[in-house]
Structure formats: C-alpha cells, structure tokens
Design a protein around this nucleic acid. Structure first.
Lengths: 335, 335
DNA sequence: TTGTATGCGTTATCAG
DNA sequence: CTGATAACGCATACAA
C-alpha cells in the first residue's frame, strides 16, 4: 500500500505538505492541495492508522469486553456501543471474555496493547479489586454491569434486586402464592441479586419460597426447559414461574405447553430483560425491562467523556443506576 | 504507559534484549530473561501494538463489515468470526455499514486504514465491480453473502434461490395452493433470489402466484405484521404464508393469531434463516436453515488462509456455496 | 548472548 | 505557504 512518501513524490511536494492536507489543519495553497488530492486518489492511499497512533498518541478506538456476541442481549449492547462510537468517529474493537477470569483479563490486556483509549467492559468473572485497579490504570475504563463503590463514577449498572422485586410484587398482586423460580448459576451477580429481590418481595407479601421451589439451569431456552421439568418431576405444584431471563422463560413456556398446561390460564410466567424475543414469542412475555441499549449508550458516552481532552469540566458523579419496570404483556394473569 | 526502554532500563539491559524475550524467537540467557520479565510485570508493560504493526508490517487483525450488530442473524455471524479469529490470535475490528453504499465503503476504508490483514464483508449495497476491485486490492478480502464470478474463490454464499424452492416445494407438497409471500425490499439480493426460487417451484407445481399475493415490509416482526395485514385488508384468501425471514414470520403469526386464526390448522407458515427465535416462538417455526455460523467460520478461515505466509500451497477454489434445507417444526401442516 | 543502529509511516517543530 | 528533521515504540540486521 502506498505511503505518504509515494504521494509526496507523485505530487512533487514534501511528505509534510501531504500530511497537512490530510489533517486539514493548516492552510495549503489550493493548487498544491488539488495536486496532492489527485495523487492520493490515484494511489488509493490510506493513511496508516498505526503510524498515526504512534506519533499522535491517540487511537480513536474504544474496546468492548463481553462474554459472548451471539447472545441477543450482548449483541444489543455491542450494537449500541458501536452506534455512538461511530458517530464520534471511534473504531470498535471487540473482545470476548467468556465467563472466565483469565480470558476476561486477557481480553482487557489485548485491548490495552491496542492502546484503546476507552473501554466498556461487562465483567462476569473478574474480582472487584482487579477491576478497581484496572479502572485506575485505564483512563477511559467503564464498567457496565455492576457497581463497585470505589469506582462508582465509572459504573453504569442495573438494579437487579429491584428487578426481582418488581416481578415478585406483580405476581403477588395477581394473587399467586404457589410460586417457583427458575434461576441460573452461570451469571453470579445478576442471578443472586434478582433472587434476593424476589425473596424480599415475597416475604413482604407473606408468601413462602421453599428452597426446593428454586431450580437452576443454563441461562437459555434449554436451561429453562430442564429446570421446570425437574420441578415438575419432583411433584411441586405452582401457578406462577419467575424466570431469570426471557430465554429461560420461553423454555418454560414450551415445556409447560408440551405438558398440556395453558399459559397464562393455568400458569403465569414472568421473564426478565425484555429482549426482542419477548415480543415475538407466543404468548408474548410479561417481563422486566432491562434497558441495555440506553445503558450501553450512556456507558459509551461516559467512557468517551472521560478521555475527552477538550472538556474542561470533569464531572465526578456517583455513577448511573438504571431502574427496572414491568412490561405487561400476555404471559401472566390473575390466579 | 511504560515503553520497552523503561523496561530495559529497569532490567539493566538494552531494548533489543527486551524485544527478544517478548517475541521469544531468540534465545536469551535465563537470568536476564527472568530479570526482564520481572521488570515487565513491575511496570505493567504492554507492547504497543501500533509500533509493532508499523515495524513488523503485520497487525493480526481481521475486519468485519456487517449492516448491523443488533440483528440476531448478524450477531451470530460476528460471533462465529470472533470465535475462530480469537483461536488464531487475531483481533476483531467491527464496522457497520448500514444498508448504504457510501457507509459500507467508509467502513471498508476505515478497516484498510487500520491495516486489517483479513476482512469478512457482508455487503448489501456496494456494486459488484467495486467489490471486485476491493478484493483485488486487499489480499485477505472475503465476501460472505454473495457470489461474484470474477472473485468466486473469495466468496462464501448461500443458495437463496434453492432456499425459496425448498420452502415452496414443501408447502406445495402439503397440498396448499392458496399461497401468499411476505417479502422485503430492504435486502435486495436475498429477497429477490428467494422469490425467484419460490416462483420456479410454484410454476413446476402449477400453482399461480399473482403479484397481489406478494406483500413487502421491513425485514422484522413489525414488517411481517403490517405486510400480512395489508393482504388481509385487500381480502386475499390464503392457507399458507411464505416469509422472507423468521422475524417476519413471527409477526405474521402474531397478527393472524390476533385475528383468531389458528397456526398451523388454519394457516401454515414457513420462515427463513432458522435463527434462535425460530425454536423459541410458539408454535415453533418450520423454516429454511441458513447455516450462517458454519459459513462465517468458513469465511474467516478462508480469509485467514489467504494471508497465511506459511502456507506454501495456495488453493484456488471456486468458492463455497452452502445449501438450504428445511427444518420441520410446528408452524406448517397439510392443507 | 547481548548491544547499537536503522527504519517502519506519520505528525509536529522549526526554519526558510 | 512549504520543506527538512526529529520523534513516536518497537523489531531486526549487523557488530561485538
């Protein structure tokens, strides 16, 4: 690929002048400018971003760390980040961290090696103190899935406990008292927090939730199926199912329907997240809204503002917590 | 951030020696090696990828161009690419091109500026000759959504015409003859090819498909709803609906169900793509499998092999066409 | 085994 | 307005 020297030679000027028309920061005579632009086009020249990064010490790149891209929830998140990044002329580097602390750290280190200026990370496995250290070391580091008090101004998070409450409150208000919970062990924080919220709410409503009314599974369709089947096989009776997420809820619906149970007449089901799926499935899911798109946008803007040189005002806030709310659709009804 | 010089100074050696332990290509005495590694850890040093790229002329980066990340289909594609890339220690740079030729070109140019060695692009809007030129200029360029004869060995594509046939053949074999098609105008190639396949099949079965039996909409849930509603409002009768994709199919199911029609007893519906959604919705979608995960893996491997220096054997094939097949689930039945 | 010097492609500083 | 020249951080050919 052609370099700035080639362009300079072809246009009969010095590399410095070519650089000037590229950055458009200094005035160049219209004549030579035209000549240079012609040479650029002719050679199909593209300024080497690495050389630029090296000398300018700025890469205009934002890194994204998520566990997996294929999950609609994370895809939505990545998409929102990409959207605001692109509008600000930032490139997006994606690194997946699975659910493994080692891999997550590798992902972040790789992003550091690329000299990403900003970083939005959804960490499932890294210890808090490691994340705190990382945040201190990396100026544009923003955490998107949890609050760590020491770096609260770098956190954007969702009130999962409140989310658990919302779903349990609703189902209690519908008159249900035989409730089961489909949870997961794979996304530690989220799941335990949601469960905590559920327990709080149920206690307030004087509804008991025995341990054997809680089943675990992988946080997807298959996991939902298996979990609800295990509950049924144990002979547990229930009129309402509170699910860790929408995907599991669809698995529950499917398993129950196969067994001849009607949703929501026989059993009410509440999901969590409100991914696209929730609107598409039948019956449409009543679920708890997790505004990941808005959160991802905010996180990206936060990360970008942290590294903005032109902003004289540095805002140190207390972070951004987002609240859940119920989306009433068709999968839950009165007992 | 610390540089190689800082490390060298701290370890009491020359930068060259540090570089040697980093690349692990030349033997360094165990003692100095240990000293250097200690210094690296102490300074939390990360080799600057840009400086490396500049001098080594290799970035180990693969670029991905897709129209949008939020769509489950593209998310799956990006995920598969990322997966094989990571296993080969390649970074992934994502650029979205919407459905606009200008933006797609911008996305590719940006990836070029980053000196991506490989590129997997799903182009919806760029003209074939532009793509051919791009492929010729960029060694690791692979097209994932269509065949362009001039660069067939750089193409991985799906037989959309065959896919249209598969769905129409099936619905015809079930005895349906009043068929409507829900298509879209937003993804030109795919949609017209699928429609072509449908027409071919129907002609073979002596079934007519009047133009007013074809409705268009955005390729999503809402588009499916609107399209089928417009058909109904026109008073068109049908017992089977062939949809451009699964998302539209769910919209159709929803609209029809709202109108009291039962799926599949009253109306049979066939989707396309077999995204996750198809398994989750109710009734589960009978659909045409589009093996995007396998295709994306293949495309990535192809792109990577194109730039592999160590492969003495260069395979010039005729590209990779993937065939559709029907996934029979619950949304279609005998007339 | 290790150190020195050079260059990768750009930008920025300083003269002219 | 334009042209040398140095510097960014690293890898490598060449010396030692």
């Amino acid at each position: 690929m052609a370099t700035i020297k080639d362009v300079a030679k072809l246009a009969g000027v010095s590399p410095a002048t070519v650089s000037r028309v590229l950055s458009a920061t200094v005035v160049v005579s219209p004549k030579t400018k035209m000549r240079i632009e012609k040479a650029i086009a002719e050679l199909d020249f593209r300024p080497n971003a690495h050389a630029r990064a090296l000398v300018s010490k700025s890469t205009h790149t934002i890194g994204v760390v998520i566990s997996q891209l294929a999950d609609p929830f994370f895809a939505q998140m990545a998409s929102s980040i990409e959207d605001v990044a692109r509008k600000r002329k930032f490139k997006v580097l994606v690194s997946t961290g699975s659910l493994d602390a080692q891999k997550e750290l590798m992902a972040i280190k790789s992003l550091q090696a690329q000299r990403c200026e900003a970083m939005v990370v959804n960490s499932k496995a890294l210890a808090d103190d490691v994340l705190v250290e990382l945040a201190q070391r990396i100026p544009g580091f923003v955490l998107i899935n949890k609050l760590i008090p020491e770096i609260s101004e770098r956190c954007v998070w969702f009130d999962n406990i409140g989310g658990g409450k919302v779903m349990a409150d609703y189902i209690a208000s519908l008159g249900h008292s035989n409730i089961v919970v489909i949870s997961t062990k794979e996304r530690v924080y989220d799941a335990t927090h949601r469960l905590t919220g559920i327990r709080q709410s149920l206690t307030e409503h004087d509804i008991t939730l025995p341990d054997d009314h809680i089943a675990h599974g992988s946080p997807d369709y298959a996991g939902g199926r298996k979990a609800i089947e295990s509950l049924i096989n144990q002979g547990i009776k229930f009129s309402a199912v509170l699910c860790y997420n929408d995907a599991m809820a669809t698995g529950v619906i499917s398993a129950l329907t196969d067994l001849g149970r009607h949703i929501p007449d026989d059993v009410s089901i509440v999901g969590f997240d409100d991914v696209l799926l929730a609107k598409y499935c039948m019956p449409k899911l009543t679920t708890v809204k997790y505004p990941i798109d808005i959160m991802a946008r905010k996180a990206t803007e936060l990360a970008l503002s942290l590294i903005a040189k032109d902003s004289s005002v540095i805002q140190i806030g207390k972070g951004y917590q987002y609240k859940p709310f119920l989306v009433r659709r068709e999968s839950a009804t009165k007992c």
